[in-house]
Amino acid sequence: MAFVAPKETYSGKVYNVNIGTGDKAISFGSENVLPFHSFEGAVPNKPLIAYEIQDVPPSDWPENVQKPYSSVSGDPVTWAKFCQDSLNAKAIALRLLGTHPDRENRSPEDAAKTVKDVLAAINIPLIILGSNHAEKDAPVLIAAAEVAKDKNCVIGKAQEANYKTIAAAAMANNHKLIAMSELDINLSKQLNILITQMGFDKERLITDPMCSALGYGLEYTYSVMERIRLAALTQNDLTMQPPMLADVGMYVWKIKETQAPESDVPQWGNAEERGIAWEAMTATALLMAGAELLIMRHPKAVEAVGKVIEELNA
């Protein structure tokens, strides 16, 4: 008798999230199987990779990942256009890092202007991120959400400390919302519940269980993501069915392994290749765990992960 591969069937399905407007709008999520298990069910969309840019020059990034953007990163509009036109980005994630009180402490109005200018220059979807300062993010993301009204952006990140205002702004201006909790599956579920109890549609949420880099706790992120996805699919847990975000770039490009020059650690080899490989490996691991939306930095790492996605979908 011929061998028949065993197949799992699942009771749940990940929500379909569509972002952007016009022909460049794009969807992710919507599968009813574990990542890349297209042999068991429907995988209508591929995971989406967004290029990360920021409102201030990336002087905090290691040189090897600054380099590809050296001629454009002085201005977020030029930078965004470069990602769209030269790198064929499908989406952009604009991090409003300059609003952080310990950085340039830019005002919500300044941040809103940057968002407006970037939106005017591109036609691909935009993810708008705060500086991860719970208190400051609230006014910044409210202003950003308003200026981007009806552009179907992703706003983030709403956390336990600030979700009410940010979720209300995303809801009023027709955006999607990232809900972030800190590596705890039960708190992740709780935050999704609290946000939906405000009247926010759970099908417009994206869950961020908090990312971590390979070698720096990746296994925790992996495990939480995997368990979220299993709860969504096998327990049909409606609160755990939003797609998941892996905010890879910012976690990978701050660790020793992506910064140390070859002259310091010759046994680690070429620093640029090492950094690219580190970002691509971290991202690929989190794709396996169930991430549908990735935010990444190095064009070569994006390319490598894009290839993995193509091959696993083939």
């Binding site: 039960n186 579920k189 709780q190 519940i193 109890q197 368990r227």
Partner: peptide, 11 residues
């Protein structure tokens, strides 16, 4: 059988 969250009774 269902994932715990503080608000599980409200779901």
């Amino acid at each position: 059988k269902t994932l715990y969250a503080h608000s599980y009774l409200e779901m």
